[in-house]
Every structure is written in structure tokens, then in C-alpha cells.
């Protein structure tokens, strides 16, 4: 499946975790801290800049288009002699609730869950850490020019202390992550298992099946574009839009096993900008997709929208 994965994996070693305060005053910094493979800046590392596959920071150690960053949270840390506070009332990770928050991130939810279960605030036990959870940051691309770009992610955490000598302290921590493409790590064949897998992971997962849109929680337009649902929701499926339906269109119009009609496939036309009466361009209220990615969709449909394998020109 993932052709290029095995090479670095053989030499992978566990990512090093360093304790980092992450923000706020020196006095409150230790209420809650991150443990993560920080490496930037070199003199006093606070952030993570990780090349896909670099075993010192990418926990999966393989070039697969995703940096898997292992992050843990510790309460009442003793990492800094400047800070001796102990007593955590609550630790809140931002965007951890799947309640329609457009920035909802399941990795944040996983981290919050570990905090609740394993640290179980309020607590004054020193050096209490969660087991690490994996933040998956995909690179951006490949785009039309065959290039990939880095992607940034941020973990925000706000900690409130218990009442310590009559005061409540607040510790805000931020961890920045940047996943960079590996050298020679930007070919579709290396990153995806086939054309639809690429469409799913590079288009749907990143631009459509996101919180508030075509994900399970919101299911905009009664259309789910998550893995396992997207293919059956699209291929040979009637569109909800009545005009498109009346015109005999399909979401993805397949004629036979190796032929489809891009012109009457609403998926493609929605990405391009549909005719009047056929609804809004997608992604809604966002910049249009890279033209090369839209071409991938068009070629895929023209080739009969196969669920597996590579359609020529899409790799």
C-alpha cells in the first residue's frame, strides 16, 4: 500500500519528549506543561518543526505525508525551579469538543480525554503525566507543480489552579507544530494507495469532511464525505439538488466500469463552480481547490470512478 514507507522505519527510534512550559509567566508555567519532541529553536526548544518521516519527531517514522507527533500533558510539573505552584483545578484543551466547533480536532479531544482520565483534575500530585496521544499533521500537497508545502498546527491549553494562598492562577500554553515534506517525499504514489485514496485523503479529509461540513456531526446537505461513506454517497448517487436531479445528473456519474461523465457529475461541477440553480461552489466560503487536484477528480470520474487503483495522470 504505502510504497516508500519501509526505508526509514527500520532505523526509527522513539521520538524524544521534552518538557516545555509553552507560555505564560515563569511563576505559573509549571501548572501544566506539554511533553513533546520539541526541537526549535535549538538553543531552548519550544516548538516542533518536523520533516515527515524524521524519527526524532515523527512517531510513525515513515514518509507517508503525515507527521505523527506524540504529545503528553503533565500537571504540577517540577521542570522549572522558578515555578513551585502545585494544585490544578482544570486543564482545558482548545477545540476538543465535537459540538460543531469549526476547528474541532479529534486529536485535541483525545488529549483532553487523557487529561480527564489520567490526571483527573483537581489534583495537587506533582509530575502527573498522561500517556502520549498522537497529533497527526499532514503535509499540504502534492500540488500541480509537483510540490508539497508544510502545514502548521497549534495545541492550545488553558490551566486554572486551585485556590493557592487565596488566588487562582492561570497558565496558558501553546505548542506549535510544523510538518514539512520529506526530501523526495512528495509523490502521490508514495503518499497514497490509489486515486480515490488520494481524493479521500487530500481533498475530502482536508477540505470537505471537516467539522461543521460534510462530517458525521454536521452532515451538510445530507452528504457524508468521510472514509467509508464518501464512495457510496457519491458514485452513481442521485444529488439532493432538484435541478441537478431533474437534469439527470449524478453526484458522480458512472456510465460503465471504465467510463464516467464528468460534465454531469455534480461533485466535479461543484468544485469548478456549478451552473445557476445547482447550489454553491465548494468548498463553501473557502478558496477553490488547486486546479491540479480538480483535474485528479475529473480524470478519476472519466475513468469510471474506480474505488482502488491508480487512474493514469492522477499519480
Amino acid at each position: 500500500m504505502l510504497a516508500a514507507v519501509a526505508i526509514i522505519a527500520a532505523t526509527a527510534r522513539p521520538a524524544a519528549a521534552i518538557t516545555v512550559g509553552g507560555g505564560g509567566g515563569a511563576r505559573t508555567d509549571c501548572l501544566a506543561v506539554f511533553q513533546a519532541p520539541v526541537n526549535t529553536p535549538a538553543s531552548h526548544p519550544r516548538s516542533i518543526v518536523c520533516a515527515d518521516g524524521d524519527p526524532t519527531c515523527d512517531a510513525d517514522g515513515v514518509v507517508n505525508g503525515v507527521c505523527a507527533i506524540a504529545i503528553a500533558v503533565c500537571a504540577n510539573s517540577t521542570f522549572s525551579p522558578m515555578c513551585t505552584l502545585a494544585g490544578v483545578q482544570s486543564i482545558t484543551i482548545a477545540h476538543a469538543r465535537d459540538d460543531g466547533d469549526p476547528k474541532f480536532d479529534p486529536a485535541m479531544q483525545a488529549l483532553q480525554q487523557r487529561v480527564q482520565s489520567e490526571i483527573d483534575p483537581p489534583t495537587s500530585t506533582t509530575g502527573l503525566c498522561t500517556s502520549p496521544t498522537t497529533l497527526r499533521v499532514p503535509i499540504r500537497g502534492p500540488f500541480g507543480n509537483g510540490m508539497c508545502k508544510p502545514r502548521k498546527a497549534v495545541v492550545d491549553m488553558v490551566t486554572l489552579s486551585t485556590v493557592i494562598d487565596g488566588a487562582v492562577y492561570r497558565d496558558a500554553d501553546r505548542l506549535r507544530v510544523r510538518c514539512e515534506p520529506a526530501p523526495d517525499g512528495c509523490t502521490a504514489q508514495a503518499l497514497f494507495s490509489g486515486t480515490f485514496d488520494r481524493i479521500q485523503r487530500q481533498i475530502f479529509d482536508q477540505s470537505c469532511a471537516v467539522s461543521g461540513c460534510h462530517d458525521s456531526q454536521s452532515r451538510a446537505g445530507d452528504l457524508l464525505l468521510e472514509p467509508g461513506a464518501a464512495y457510496t454517497n457519491l458514485v452513481d448517487a442521485a444529488p439532493a439538488n432538484l435541478n441537478a436531479n431533474a437534469a439527470g445528473w449524478k453526484r458522480v456519474h458512472v456510465l460503465d466500469a471504465t467510463t464516467g461523465d464528468p460534465d454531469t457529475s455534480l461533485l466535479l461541477q461543484k468544485l469548478l463552480g456549478p451552473p445557476a440553480g445547482f447550489g454553491a461552489r465548494m468548498p463553501f466560503n473557502r478558496r477553490p481547490l488547486d486546479r491540479a487536484l480538480i483535474d485528479v477528480v475529473e480524470l478519476w470520474i472519466a475513468a469510471g470512478a474506480p474505488q482502488t487503483g491508480w487512474v493514469p495522470g492522477t499519480d
Binding site: 479529534p106 486529536a107 479531544q109 480525554q113 482520565s117 496521544t133 498522537t134 497527526r136
Partner: peptide, 21 residues
């Protein structure tokens, strides 16, 4: 008990996985 919304990193039989935990 929270944490069952395992959209990612769910884990299978590895004791370090989320769902296992």
C-alpha cells in the same frame, strides 16, 4: 466516561492505543 469519539488514532490491540485504554 469520555473519549470514545475516536475519529483518529483509535488503536487496535496495542495496549497504548486509545480504544484499548
Amino acid at each position: 466516561n469520555g473519549g470514545y469519539d475516536t475519529h483518529s488514532d483509535q488503536g487496535a490491540a496495542d495496549p497504548a492505543g486509545q480504544h484499548y485504554g
